[in-house]
Design a protein around this nucleic acid. Structure first.
Lengths: 337, 337
DNA sequence: CGGTTACATGTAAGCGCTTACAAAAATTAA
DNA sequence: TTAATTTTTGTAAGCGCTTACATGTAACCG
């Protein structure tokens, strides 16, 4: 059942049927024919062929959600929020959403244009794009493409991006700890090669301490290999062996915090009585672990939503000027510090 | 840059270019022309237009992942596993995956064919489809459509489905509790209108007790309004007020279990020393809550993967016979019982 | 009432691909 | 060498829609 069949049955031309199907062409058909044709459309449950429409209109009405190709990704709480936001953001539009997963090995040779063509999308939002760095390098050059990045901002990025500023988060943490009169505050630092977060959070941490006149030594710091629980565990272990543990430990993300807590609990250190722990990200687990983790919430849902809205504007707008949107994090005070 | 441009530059016909682009048509072009044309393709980074291909081939090489339209859905750990499995399953194929979210209000009038046409997909897998019951009723009739359901099996379903059997799970729980010499075992039951799970698990529970000659009374049971934490909390509260708590409580899912635990902890009942708790689903949280939850794991990842594989077979096969695949759950013994 | 204008509908040329079929070229057989 | 095959390439007709343009019809005006 295609548009011609309908036209035949309704005794009108295909053009008329097409005009009736297009909500943007409200006034172009007389009420009488419209009624007649709509009856036929209803009767045969006619749904126009998307591929034909796309071919003809040069637009697929579909956007691509680009992620690295790893099942673990959906496991991450960070994604959870982002995706929820994307879903929410796409609701009022009638865009379809295609999940484009990019393998590491293919990321190198890919061009952005290719991606869009190959998957037939009008625009793309990139999640965890640091992991596809090769691909995304191009975004820097072709800033007119309808693509928006989420998070991992750093100063030289010129393309459209939605991100959450690290500084206020650390600032809030330091203010909170200062108010609690902690004087010896340490940090579990993240790996600096994965995303700018590790470095930014560390710098913001130092700045925060300084602001509250709390002493800082590099030795009140331990570097982690990755941003995961295991790394946190091992880093804590190393620190314990070399001795001189601080009163509170601020961790570069929640996973590191849990790893650290696990080690401390193993050696029977009580949290927060003996050592306090602060995380960063407010993964849902934070509320369920014991003790509940004091951490910093990034408004992932809002960010996902903003990303979609930005993208749609880019797609439909004439002037494709890159847009950069900053969000503010918020300290969530719970039990671990 | 389209196929005609390439044909022109390479001084061949479009048919030749098309044949070269199609990996299924390996032998149809002489090595010499192939080399010549491929050079041009490389040079101009030619990527064929998906919409045109789809229109011409009557296949979009895209499958739809159908879920209710609610952001909360991605929050559920059950989804996490399923989606991870779907990603994993789609890896070796080169199908695209489109996330189709169905609003409650639109689900009524929709036809499956419509859905496929409207979103340009070759087949669909349905997650949490009980929540779109109206839509899915049709699947029962049109069993030849390339669509597969995940979970929520009940006996009269004739379409393709991948599901996890509830009986062995409860059986394992009862065997375990019997071995621990519990004699007074209760259950927090789920709402029976949402999915057959509530009823099945309850029946399996009774059967399990019987098998191990453990006494059962309906009063060792409390019904919950929904399958969530709050309902578990309130149900436990009611039970506590009416008194006569059992030694262990088997919960119809993990959320109820956490709700129950939260209430018990609030009134300072020690778990598992005073009352044991068993859940069902093995949501990731189970490992992080305190105490860790003894529960039953459904192999969600494997199920997601199986669903995709089944679907692809349905799409490409000639005979579209419905396939039903059953998975077995597994008891995860942890701290809460 | 003829001429102008506004509105409604139809005609047909694409959109960029695939593929059946035809034609040409290369290979083999006789 | 020519005919019969096989292999390679080209031609052109779709796939199902949109839309610029042409045509037809109705309404309006002096």
């Amino acid at each position: 059942m295609n548009i011609r069949d309908i036209a035949l049955k309704a005794k009108v031309s295909v053009a008329t049927v097409s005009r009736i199907m297009d909500p943007g062409k409200k006034g172009l058909v007389s009420p009488k024919t419209r009624a007649k044709v709509e009856k036929v459309i209803q009767k045969y449950h006619f749904v126009p062929n998307r591929s034909a429409q796309a071919l003809s209109k040069h637009s697929t009405h579909t956007i691509g959600m680009v992620t690295p190709f790893s099942p673990e990704i959906v496991r991450s709480p960070y994604f959870e929020g982002l995706i929820a936001g994307i879903i929410e953001g796409i609701k009022p539009l009638s865009y379809d959403i295609k999940w484009i997963m990019v393998r590491d090995d293919e990321a190198g040779g890919l061009k952005l244009n290719d991606l869009m063509q190959r998957h037939a999308v009008d625009g793309m939002v990139f999640l965890a794009w640091r992991l596809m760095a090769e691909l995304v390098k191009e975004i820097e050059k072709r800033t007119h493409l309808p693509a928006v990045l989420i998070n991992d901002y750093d100063a030289h990025i010129r393309s459209s991006i939605v991100y959450c500023d690290n500084k206020p988060g650390m600032k809030q943490i330091c203010a909170f700890l200062a108010a609690k009169n902690y004087s010896k505050i340490g940090m579990l630092r993240g790996p600096e090669n994965v995303s700018p977060d590790a470095h930014e959070r560390y710098e913001a941490f130092k700045a925060g301490l300084k602001q509250h006149k709390i002493g800082f030594h590099e030795k009140y710091t331990e570097k982690c290999e990755r941003f995961d629980e295991q790394s946190g565990f091992h880093a804590m272990e190393r620190w314990y062996e070399r001795g001189d543990l601080p009163q509170v430990i601020v961790c570069a993300n929640d996973d590191l915090a849990w790893g650290a807590m696990r080690f401390l609990q193993k050696i029977k250190v009580r949290i927060p009585e003996q050592i306090g722990i602060v995380g960063y990200d407010d993964a849902p687990r934070s509320e369920w672990t014991h003790p509940q983790l004091t951490t910093v919430r990034q408004p992932t849902e809002e960010m996902g939503k903003a990303a979609i809205e930005t993208l749609i504007k880019l797609i439909s707008g004439k002037d494709r000027k890159p847009v950069q949107i900053k969000f503010e994090p918020q300290l969530m005070i719970r039990e671990s510090a």
